[in-house]
Amino acid sequence: MDETEKLALEVKAWRAEAGYTAEAAAKLLGIPKRTFEGIEQGRGFPYSLLLRVAMECNALSLKEMQQKSSRKD
């Protein structure tokens, strides 16, 4: 498996776990929807490390929001 395929799988898993649409995920990451779709399709992305960091930061933020929400209930 090459780097672009690995990135595509990571991005797909991140989006599925978070429950985002492609449009919402792209907006959250600050990239065009077509670019995001290309990444998921394995066309690659020149800044894969930055993309992984952004996904991790957003995943942590989402978990924090969910934890705060559950504490209020």
Rank of each mutant, 00 (worst) to 15 (best):
M1N: 09
D2M: 02
D2K: 03
E3V: 13
T4C: 09
E5G: 14
K6F: 13
A8N: 06
E10Q: 13
V11N: 00
V11W: 00
K12F: 07
R15F: 00
R15V: 06
R15T: 11
A16Y: 11
A16M: 13
A18N: 12
G19T: 03
G19C: 07
Y20N: 14
Y20R: 11
A22Y: 06
A22C: 13
A24E: 15
A24Y: 07
A25T: 06
A25M: 02
A25W: 01
A26Q: 04
L29T: 01
P32I: 07
P32D: 05
P32N: 02
K33S: 05
T35R: 05
E40V: 03
E40H: 02
Q41I: 00
Q41C: 03
G42M: 01
R43Y: 05
F45Y: 15
L49K: 10
L49P: 05
L49Y: 08
L51P: 00
R52C: 05
V53L: 10
V53S: 03
A54Y: 08
A54M: 08
M55E: 01
A59M: 10
S61T: 08
S61F: 07
L62S: 08
L62F: 07
L62D: 12
K63G: 06
K63E: 14
K63P: 00
E64Y: 08
M65F: 07
M65D: 09
M65T: 07
Q67I: 12
K68P: 01
S69Y: 10
K72F: 12
